[in-house]
Nucleic acid binder design. Structure first.
Lengths: 198, 198
DNA sequence: TCGGTATGAATGAAGG
DNA sequence: CCTTCATTCATACCGA
């Protein structure tokens, strides 16, 4: 056990990552994962040859579905709400980001047809997805960026600061990283990508 | 009660990253950069159409910006779970009990502002809290009177219990990503894809 | 360290 | 479109 190592680093101060920093790194990595996924997907759609699945998500621990149900048929007969497959999600994000803006009833139908190739889906699902997608992204805006870190922080810092040092979530072996943010829109992807580039 | 203290406490567990760990993360990011790059090249070669140039590899030397200027947008990233302080919790409970029932958007804002005096909090936190609070109390109801219809006995239990069981629900997003070994090439990438497919 | 539980957060779907 | 509900996921915390 080299637990002392970590203690050491902490005491060294400045040698450690804060939660915020780690979060940034996670996002960056997530961005790459998504980009890779997109690229594979794109490749598949263009080369129309034997497709490799766009799901790059390798399993962590015993987390992935042992293929039983994921064979492209989601357990519709099971129950409750529809969940887009990664492929479907990619396509939806693409369409959304294309700025087609308001998908008509006609458009919805097309999309649904297309997506049905990649899993069970209904037009209603598509419709709801777009509705929710828009509503959600709209609400994301006012959440951020106070001004600088001059004043607004003061209140916030006290509690959060203490927590920043804490947390983790089991990052003891950094061979794998978990990031829980399931939502990373393609538009964000691109913008972040640009950020990374410079 | 003393949750914040718990969180805050640096207890020697892997809560911080050492330089060494950071370096590994950097390498992992670099790996993704290379993979993306290779994918782009592959794509281009197969389809003489190039939406993006292959120069996606960003900071293989510059690495990341520790929440410097640009990324200040999320100082409190979507990552950790917010936990109400005891004071906040009391206030929230009070408001909930008051039967205001439906906190409007306006009301939410007020509450958030008020609570921010007692610790870090966002409007979203408040919103979620009320949502969860309501849902939870609702679910607790059928537990009290056992024989209502004569058949709904342990309904409440099963629902909550379910997640522990056979998960395997919609696991299609990038919520978990395993980093490839540093020398992972594109062929591995593709084989992973195939593996997931079948 | 491990497994269970409480609860914050994400999101599909329904209502208005 | 906007708001609300219901369900599920992921994580913090705690006890064995």
């Amino acid at each position: 056990m080299e637990r002392e190592m970590q203690n050491d680093a902490y005491n060294g101060r400045g040698r450690v990552m804060t939660e915020e920093q780690m979060e940034i790194l996670r996002k960056q990595i997530a961005v790459y994962a998504v980009i890779c996924d997109q690229l594979v997907l794109l490749h598949n759609s263009l080369s129309s040859y034997h497709p490799f699945s766009s799901g790059m998500r390798p399993m962590v621990g015993g987390y992935f579905d042992p293929m039983g149900s994921s064979s492209s048929s989601h357990r519709i007969s099971s129950r409750h709400r529809w969940t887009p497959t990664s492929t479907q999600l990619q396509i939806l994000e693409s369409i959304y980001e294309e700025g087609s803006g308001t998908p008509n009833r006609r458009r919805i139908r097309e999309i649904a047809t297309e997506l049905s190739e990649h899993g069970q889906i209904t037009e209603t699902n598509v419709y709801n997805w777009f509705q929710n997608r828009r509503a959600r992204s709209k609400r994301k805006q006012p959440q951020t960026t106070t001004t600088a870190n001059g004043q607004t922080d003061d209140v916030a810092v006290t509690t959060e600061e203490r927590r920043s040092c804490g947390d983790s979530g089991g990052l003891e072996s950094y061979e794998h990283i978990l990031f829980p943010s399931p939502d990373l829109g393609i538009e964000h992807l691109l913008s972040i990508g640009k950020f990374l580039e410079s």
